[in-house]
C-alpha cells in the first residue's frame, strides 16, 4: 500500500516536473517576447514623438485649441498622447503574442480576435482626434463671427456647434469600432432632431417676441452699421 502511494507520488511528481520542464521554455520565450516588445514599443514611442514634432502636430494642436481642451481634462498633449498610445498598442500586441507562445488554445482564439481589432481602434481614435480639432475650430469661428456681428449669446452658439461636431465625431468613432452601430446612429439622429425641434418650438411659440425683436434690431441696425464703419481706410 505504502509502496503504491509512493510510486504514484513519484510518477505524479515526474509528470509535473516533465510538464514544468516542457512549459518553462515557453514561459521564457513569452518573457523574451514581452521584453523585446517593450524595447520596440519604447523605440517606436520615441520615433513617433519625433515624427509628430517634425510635422508640427504640437503647434497645430495648440493653435486649434485641442491641447487646451485636453489639459482641461487632465490629459497630456496630443503628441504625448499619440506616442504613448503607440507604445501601449505595440507592447500590448507583443504581450498577446507572448501569451500565444504559451500554447494555451483557449486563449489563442481570443488573442487573434483582439489583434484583428487593433487597426479599428487606431482609426476610431484618429476620427475622434480630427473630430475634436474640427469641433474646436468651428466653435471658435462661430464665436468670433457671432461676437463681431453683435448676435446675442455668441458663447452659447459656439458651444452648441462644438457639442454637435463632437457628438458626430464620437458617433463615427463608435461606428468604426462596430459598437452598437445602429443604436448610436439612431440615438444621435433622435438627439439632433430633438434639439432642432425643441429650438423650433421654443423660438416659434415661446420666443415670438424675442424673434421679432431680433429681426427688428437686425434691420434697424443696418443703418447704424454703415454709419460707424465709414471707411477705416
Amino acid at each position: 500500500m505504502g509502496d503504491k502511494i509512493l510510486n504514484t507520488l513519484a510518477q505524479t511528481s515526474d509528470k509535473v516536473s516533465d510538464r514544468v520542464m516542457e512549459f518553462l521554455p515557453q514561459l521564457v520565450v513569452m518573457a523574451i517576447i514581452i521584453l523585446i516588445g517593450l524595447l520596440i514599443a519604447w523605440v517606436l514611442q520615441v520615433v513617433v514623438r519625433r515624427l509628430l514634432g517634425l510635422v508640427k502636430l504640437g503647434k497645430i494642436s495648440e493653435t486649434s485649441g485641442v491641447t487646451a481642451m485636453l489639459s482641461k481634462a487632465a490629459l497630456p498633449s496630443p503628441v504625448e498622447l499619440l506616442s504613448r498610445l503607440v507604445f501601449w498598442v505595440v507592447w500590448l500586441a507583443f504581450i498577446l503574442l507572448g501569451v500565444e507562445a504559451l500554447g494555451v488554445q483557449a486563449l489563442q482564439l481570443q488573442i487573434a480576435r483582439l489583434l484583428m481589432f487593433l487597426p479599428q481602434i487606431f482609426v476610431a481614435l484618429l476620427i475622434l482626434f480630427v473630430g475634436l480639432l474640427a469641433a474646436n475650430f468651428f466653435s471658435r469661428a462661430t464665436l468670433l463671427a457671432a461676437a463681431n456681428a453683435n448676435y446675442p449669446s455668441p458663447r452659447l452658439l459656439a458651444n452648441v456647434v462644438r457639442l454637435l461636431i463632437a457628438i458626430l465625431a464620437v458617433t463615427m468613432a463608435f461606428e468604426q469600432l462596430g459598437l452598437g452601430q445602429h443604436a448610436i446612429l439612431i440615438a444621435f439622429a433622435i438627439a439632433f432632431g430633438a434639439v432642432m425641434f425643441g429650438l423650433a418650438i421654443a423660438f416659434g411659440l415661446g420666443g415670438r417676441d424675442v424673434a421679432r425683436q431680433i429681426l427688428e434690431k437686425q434691420f434697424s441696425e443696418k443703418k447704424e452699421e454703415e454709419e460707424d464703419e465709414v471707411s477705416p481706410l
Binding site: R140, A146, A147, N148, N150, P154, R155, V230
Partner: peptide, 26 residues
C-alpha cells in the same frame, strides 16, 4: 460730416472683450 455711433462701438467693445476673453487670453 461723418456720423459715428459711439455708443454702439463701446458696447461692441465691451461685449467682445467679455465674450472673447478665452481667445484674447491666448
Amino acid at each position: 460730416p461723418i456720423r459715428l455711433n459711439k455708443k454702439r462701438m463701446v458696447t461692441m467693445f465691451r461685449t467682445g472683450t467679455e465674450q472673447l476673453a478665452g481667445i484674447l487670453k491666448s
